[in-house]
Design a protein around this nucleic acid. Structure first.
Lengths: 345, 345
DNA sequence: GTGAAAGCGCTAACAT
DNA sequence: ATGTTAGCGCTTTCAC
């Protein structure tokens, strides 16, 4: 009985470096040296300690370690939500860069954008939180743009165009412009637009591209053709319905992301409109799903952005330079499903 | 100059609870009390401290906090890789449960299964590592099955069927059996099989389902019809090629996950075989991609498994009971593309 | 209601 | 080559 309780206690308690030291009959620092691969430890001592570590099933307490040492070989990725296609693509790219590196990855999320509001300046909180245990952080489209810069930070698609830290974003304006020029070139005169959340720099630049393309072509900018969603398929449906139920229905729609374009796709189907034939539809983002629908889209190489951001961050970490550089991913129009030409109408 | 250097220094240094205390003219413990929402702090003091915190842009160092306190409101998800469909589905489910809870999520990955081998018992390392900063951990298909149980742990699709911690897995055997019965019911007599990594319990149970279904139907089990991949599309292609180039080509193929089934799909296309008509193809997992190909598949509700695992973990954390329960997700055959019936041949 | 002091598990000087 | 010691930033008794 005595013994079994002893075992219970032993099982419950966390095994620390001190337990290892005691069992091995050495000091804590020697164990620490072995743990951190220092060379100044006798072979025998080292082997013995390794055995004890294995026997006891000891493993480092990351929290304690990161409090003391600088290099953690860990990169943090902070996202408000990890379940939408954009986030997933980012993660794929980050993941690839991580796999090629000596770093491991810690993705931090509160699971839902809306939950972020709970605690005052949650965004700041989670960012710092991740920083406290990692060597640097990648932040995706943060709600706030202010950070305590005591650790390297790279931002993907930041709210502001010139933040005071390195950033990666796509050539949103250029991409939208090209998409519009493509549609206009096909003869479209009434082109609907579905925008994204207005507080985002990227969303605004896509809208600017839409407007400028029309202007350049000498076409009118009509308010009824400009709708706005929040990048989800649901709002794509809503906006699609609004646009397609106009008296003078647009002959083409440019959605500022693919998820919303997919919503339009659905609405068009409901209304009996076939997508390349009855309505020209272009999206933005090129998420995997859009391939299956044959969507024409502006590829901003999301996963490459994640990859680039990670590489930038690693570079900054290793060189300890906080240089404020911006990487612009070139967008590209992917015509999978050539839109209907109505030239001559 | 003096001043600017001072500012620099200030910017670089991390702002700690002591800075807040000093600025606010109170003790560290009072600040800590406010931070943790204790009630025994005077309103005025509290408000003042809150202001200072905001001014200084202070935020808690997670590492330090988790060293001292028990409740961290953080759940860890440990995965070898986060970029393949299965992992993504798990994450979606976990994410949903997290969004509904008071917990936040920390996903830990080394980015690549292969990298895991680098450090001795890396798997144990990362698991403990995540545990040291979270209240509990969800582990997905770990290479090893031993863990130090000092924190709640739930495993999804563990290697062993009866681990000594709560686990979630699908009814793999039953699912495979049903898929096979479906194909056999359509009259198929030569059904190819593509298995998964043999060290995984789930893969073996799917193979057992295949074998038993054949046995029950009085059909021979032929070695040349049984191939094995590693759950990637590439190996699906390899196995598909092998099976479809047999002299006596199978009329149906059951792949033990959808990614491999997609590989077969590709091979079939290359060979000019149309999928429902010339070859019956069933997968397993029901990842989003399979919807677009119209794949018939065994749905194991992956994301629900992530959801269930998270809920189980939260329950265990809150009740502090380490009960060893197993949750079995019922699989379901999803016939999207009814396979060719050859009854009567 | 608030402060002083003890430590969580670890690493990094500084000793020896 | 190894041990001793001083903290990292925080929470938590225990005093007052």
């Amino acid at each position: 009985m005595e013994q079994s309780r002893e075992i219970m206690d032993q099982e419950r308690r966390t095994i620390t470096i001190r337990d290892v030291a005691k069992t091995a009959g050495v000091s804590v620092s020697t164990v620490s040296r072995v743990l951190n691969g220092r060379v100044d430890v006798a072979r025998d001592t080292k082997n013995h300690i390794l055995t004890v570590i294995d026997d006891l099933g000891y493993s480092t307490n990351l929290a304690a370690r990161s409090m003391r040492s600088q290099k953690k070989n860990l990169i943090g990725l902070v996202m408000p939500d990890i379940a939408y296609p954009y986030a997933i693509e980012i993660m794929k790219g980050v993941n690839r860069a991580i796999a090629e590196s000596e770093f491991d990855l810690l993705v931090y999320t509160s699971g839902d954008v809306r939950k972020s509001g709970r605690i005052t300046s949650e965004q700041k909180y989670i960012s710092l939180l991740a920083k406290s245990i990692s060597d640097g952080v990648i932040v995706v489209a943060p709600a706030t743009s202010e950070f305590n810069i005591d650790k390297p930070l790279v931002s993907i698609d930041p709210v502001m165009s010139n933040p005071n830290y390195p950033a990666v974003h796509a050539t949103n304006y250029q991409g939208a412009l090209e998409a519009m020029e493509y549609l206009i070139g096909l003869g479209h005169r009434r082109i609907g637009f579905i925008g994204g959340r207005v507080e985002l720099e990227s969303a605004n630049r896509r809208l600017m591209g839409y407007r400028d393309a029309l202007k350049q072509a000498g076409l009118p900018i009509e308010d009824e053709l400009i709708t706005s969603g929040d990048f989800t398929t649901e709002t794509g449906i809503l906006c699609g319905r609004a646009l397609l139920s106009l008296n003078d229905r647009p002959t083409a729609i440019f959605a500022s992301n693919d998820q919303m374009a997919m919503g339009v796709y659905q609405v068009a189907e409901e209304l009996g409109l076939r997508i390349p034939d009855d309505l020209s539809l272009v999206g933005f983002d090129n998420i995997p799903e859009s391939k299956y629908l044959g969507l024409t889209t502006v590829d901003q190489f999301i996963s490459e952005m994640g990859y680039a951001a990670t590489q930038m961050l690693i570079k900054v970490i290793n060189e300890e330079s906080f240089e404020n550089q911006t990487f612009r991913m070139q967008t590209k129009l992917v015509i999978r499903n050539s839109c209907r030409s109505i030239a001559g109408n």
